[in-house]
């Protein structure tokens, strides 16, 4: 089965490829773009990207599996990414992860049955001055404690 990108998506892909002397160089930005549209990168998307960039599908699979931000399975509507690296753990970051696990009733790497939340443990997010911190989709939240996490979760509803 193959997937056709919409004309608009194709146009945006061509805008990206124009920035580089090789079409392959557009692979990461194009995968970001496609994942942004579809939520995750299934084998179908991989093949479609490979075909539009003129690459063997394996080259796309190699890249998708190398980078942690690309996902081959659907994520929850809100992707909670909690930092567990050193500066955050020095600021009691572990209890944020524990709090979310208990609250959502899921383990790290899991998605709630209603498809609303996915909980991930990540390495340093580059925001250590606001430790402990997490990202919800692309938004940063810092200086967390369980109460602040509660307030953030309220607003996600």
């Amino acid at each position: 089965m193959s997937r056709e990108f919409t004309a608009d998506l194709k146009k945006r892909i061509e805008e990206i490829t124009a920035r580089y002397p090789s079409r392959q160089a557009a692979l990461l930005p194009v995968l970001h773009l496609v994942q942004g549209e579809t939520g995750f990168l299934s084998a179908e998307e991989e093949r479609a990207v490979a075909s539009i960039l003129g690459l063997p599908p394996i080259k796309v699979r190699e890249v998708v599996t190398f980078y942690t931000m690309f996902t081959r399975k659907p994520l929850g509507r809100f992707h909670l990414q909690v930092c567990s690296n050193l500066s955050c753990s020095l600021a009691a970051g572990e209890r944020i992860l524990r709090h979310l696990q208990a609250k959502l009733g899921i383990g790290v790497g899991e998605t709630t049955p209603d498809g609303k939340y996915t909980l991930t443990e990540v390495e340093c997010l580059g925001a250590c001055e606001q430790a402990p911190c997490m990202m919800v989709n692309f938004d940063y939240h810092g200086n967390l404690d369980p109460e602040k996490v509660e307030r953030i979760m309220e607003e996600l509803k």
Binding site: S22, Q24, A25, A26, L27, L28, L31, H32, L53, L55, K59, E62, V63, F66, Y67, T68, M69, F70, E123
Partner: peptide, 19 residues
């Protein structure tokens, strides 16, 4: 797209080339 090694300069080059 999330890989520390891409901060190393030649890892960065490979990554920029779509690998």
């Amino acid at each position: 797209a999330g890989a520390y090694i891409c901060g190393e300069e030649t890892g960065l080059l490979e990554s920029l080339e779509g690998k």
